[in-house]
Computed example of a mutant assay.
Amino acid sequence: MTELDLEAEYNNRARVADHMVHMDGWHRDAAAYRAAALCELDLAYGPGPRHRVDLFHPPGGDAGGPVVMFIHGGYWQGLDKSSSSHLARGANERGLTVAVPSYDLAPHVTLSGIVAEMETAADFLMQRSGRSLIVAGHSAGGHLAACLMARSVKSLKRPIRAGLSISGLFDLVPLVSTSVNRALGLTIEEARRLSPIYDQPPADTRFVAVVGGAESAEYRRQSRDFVTQWNAMDALGSVHEVANAHHFDVMAGLADPDDPLVDMLIGLADAA
């Protein structure tokens, strides 16, 4: 593909004309859920002002399974945990505790630094809860969730073997020539090193790569290729396409306890 094609494929805001309507809705719904939910807000997992995580607890009591760690998107250079609180609702109502962390953003930190912050957050949550994690995330958060699984055997206190990546980015090399990379400053070599598609998953890894049916061909290809690559290394992964969904509404089902995305989390919890 040409550079112009890649720019169009990865520029999600240009592809969805009313993206700000959806993003404004995230913040509205997230604030409403924080006000109503059983939650612990702004727990410190590190020294910086953005090294904070919110915990959302099931209203009917925790079922005792793994904690879901949901990582927000924003191409590693925007948003924070406050945009995603409402996405804990579906899992909460099915008995799972959900953690939503913030992290420092590019260009103030490198992408390697962001990955390291999420590793610190994951260790904090596992130590605090005494439980394993299911890692989940949207867009850049989907990339970070896959990185946590891929690096967990070497970098974390215990492996992470279950994940749900929504509109994830698993091969960063195509982004190097796009405007996304202005803040990241990745070389081809760094992009490859930070691409979980090239990493070995932990033994017995289970994951689902979710993508919207109305997303770009590159996003859909990335999910297919990631599943193919990790399954070839003895993981158990699948692709789930949300019909007619675009980049800004593909994860909306996480707020609904009866949605298939929440069913997937429950399935991952049962296997974790």
Rank of each mutant, 00 (worst) to 15 (best):
L4V: 11
A8V: 08
R15I: 07
V16H: 13
A17F: 12
H19A: 15
H19D: 02
M20W: 13
D24R: 12
H27R: 15
A32R: 15
A35R: 11
A36N: 09
A37V: 08
L38M: 09
L38Y: 02
C39Q: 03
Y45T: 07
G46P: 02
R50F: 06
R50P: 08
R52D: 00
V53C: 03
P59V: 02
D62T: 05
V67Y: 02
V67P: 00
V68E: 03
F70V: 01
I71P: 01
G73H: 05
W76E: 04
S82K: 06
S83C: 07
H86T: 00
L87R: 04
R89L: 10
R89M: 12
R89Q: 08
A91V: 07
N92W: 09
E93T: 05
E93S: 00
R94V: 07
T97H: 00
A99D: 06
A106L: 15
A106P: 05
V109Q: 11
T110P: 01
S112V: 00
I114S: 02
M118T: 14
A122V: 15
A122I: 11
L125H: 13
S129E: 05
R131T: 14
R131W: 15
L133Y: 11
G141R: 10
G142K: 13
H143F: 04
H143D: 12
M149W: 09
M149S: 12
R151T: 12
S152G: 02
K154N: 12
S155C: 12
K157D: 10
P159C: 07
I160N: 10
L169A: 14
F170Y: 15
L172V: 04
V173I: 05
L175Q: 10
S177D: 08
S177N: 08
V180C: 12
R182S: 13
L184I: 04
L184D: 01
L186E: 11
T187G: 07
E189V: 13
E189M: 03
E190F: 04
R192Q: 15
L194M: 13
S195H: 10
P196N: 14
P196W: 13
D199G: 10
A203L: 11
D204A: 14
D204S: 09
R206W: 08
R206A: 09
F207V: 04
A214S: 14
A214M: 05
E215F: 02
S216V: 02
S216M: 06
E218R: 14
E218G: 04
Y219M: 14
A232G: 12
A232C: 01
A235D: 06
G237Y: 09
H240A: 01
H240F: 07
H240I: 03
V242E: 13
A243L: 10
V250F: 09
M251C: 06
A252M: 05
A255K: 06
D258F: 09
D263Y: 02
L265A: 02
I266K: 01
G267Q: 08
A272K: 00
A272P: 00
